[in-house]
Design a protein around this nucleic acid. Structure first.
Lengths: 116, 116
DNA sequence: AGACGTACTACGACAGACAAAGTACGACAG
DNA sequence: CTGTCGTACTTTGTCTGTCGTAGTACGTCT
């Protein structure tokens, strides 16, 4: 196994995207490449998944969008809102909890908690 | 936040159930209670989710079932198969990978990997 | 002129989670 | 002896998120 199944990461796609918008606005194609490289090719988000996530995030008020074509290419940039930041933070907390819960049911060769 | 959202743990429900069947056969109600207590009430699996997982696991050949009413109550017990054990193991490996990937996008107060 | 990379959008299908409701039966209290 | 509670499930239908397929559009490079 070299790739992650989508059902596993489902529920964190929004969080991942918000993380990448945390410091500056960005757009679909760029985000996709960043996820790919930051995960060392382990997770490659599908275009449709990504863009539907943007729609959802905007609808929820976690990002706002604007079009910019000063680069010659027409791009839809997304900017995180304060609500988005708060949501991201809460998801990070939730992740710690999730990790603890899941690991009650996971067998790991080394029970030291060591990872990479 | 005291409970885990379902989308987060989705993709690990099957793994959790297989973990609880690892050593001995069990049945729905018991499994549900075990998940509840092992997760310290943090994760309470819904009945429909649980029973549909059993169906799925059986269809996939990861568990077999039999009815036992020697306790006075008619219960459907599930027993893990060798394929189920192999699947569980692979899911555990996948979990390590998932953890690494997700944590690239998560901010944690202490970057030490310390948890609780 | 055609291929390739960028940057999306639309549509439809599917799987898993779950709410709601119902069934069935034993134990136990009033 | 009746009603409630706990156990142990089943059925049905809905919703959400993922993703396959396909298509659009435009710039660059060959």
């Amino acid at each position: 196994m070299t790739e992650i199944s989508s059902d596993v990461i489902r529920g964190y796609n929004d969080t991942i995207i918000l993380f990448l918008l945390k410091d500056e606005p960005s757009y679909g194609y760029e985000i996709q490449k960043q996820i790919r490289s930051l995960s060392k090719e382990k997770y490659i988000i599908k275009e449709t998944t990504l863009y539907s996530a943007f729609t959802r995030l905007e609808k929820s008020g976690y990002v706002t969008s604007y079009v910019d074509d000063s680069s010659g290419k027409k791009r839809t940039y997304y900017k995180i809102t304060d609500e988005g930041k708060a949501y991201y933070d809460s998801k990070c907390e939730e992740w710690q909890l999730t990790k603890e819960v899941v690991e009650n049911f996971i067998y790991s060769k080394e029970q030291t908690g060591e990872s990479l």
